[in-house]
Design a protein around this nucleic acid. Structure first.
Length: 155
DNA sequence: GCCAACGTTGGC
DNA sequence: GCCAACGTTGGC
């Protein structure tokens, strides 16, 4: 089962916010990077996504969610009041699509960026690559399995 | 708050 | 098509 990693600033929207959200779901809107968009377009319902807290103290993986809808037109691109409004996106051929995700779990062991670096390299995890700023990235299955094991603790 | 790294834009 | 300028991301 394919995995993604979604970055969010917890001051704006955290794993706890997702857990408390209506239906425990949220539309992952506002992504305005083609590579990140393409990663979401390739996602399927049932895929899992790690929820990463960026610009946090410390930054790291906080939990897990599940893709519950794909290929959703991002409404914020047509909302002039939105920070994510995109006047250049054609209404009859929207530029930005996104996914809807649902809360699955908050990990008992928060995996800080430092800990991730201890275990993985940039080859394993795109976010560990120098200068990587992508807010949506794919995660290799075997790497994902290791992350889950670390994050859930050994029992 | 700093700044390296990156993506996008627009002049040419 | 090149590339300088600009804005943004995100760790520190």
């Amino acid at each position: 089962m394919p995995f993604l990693l979604l970055k969010s600033e917890p001051d704006t929207f955290s794993i706890d916010d997702l857990r408390k959200a209506k239906g425990k779901t949220t539309l992952w809107d506002g992504v305005r990077n083609f590579q990140a968009r393409n990663t979401m377009l390739a996602a399927a319902v049932g895929d899992r996504a790690f929820f990463y807290h960026s610009n946090a103290k410390p930054p790291g993986i906080a939990g897990l969610c599940e893709v519950v809808a794909t290929n959703v037109v991002d409404p914020t691109q047509f909302d002039e009041a939105s920070h994510y409004y995109d006047a250049t996106s054609p209404k009859d051929n929207p530029r930005w699509h996104t996914i809807k995700v649902k809360f699955v779990e908050k990990f008992p062991n928060f995996l800080s960026l430092d800990e991730l670096r201890d275990t993985f390299t940039g080859d394993d995890l795109i976010i560990l690559r120098k200068g990587s700023r992508l807010s949506v990235t794919p995660v290799d299955d075997t790497v994902a399995a290791q992350i889950l094991q670390l994050a859930r603790g050994k029992a």
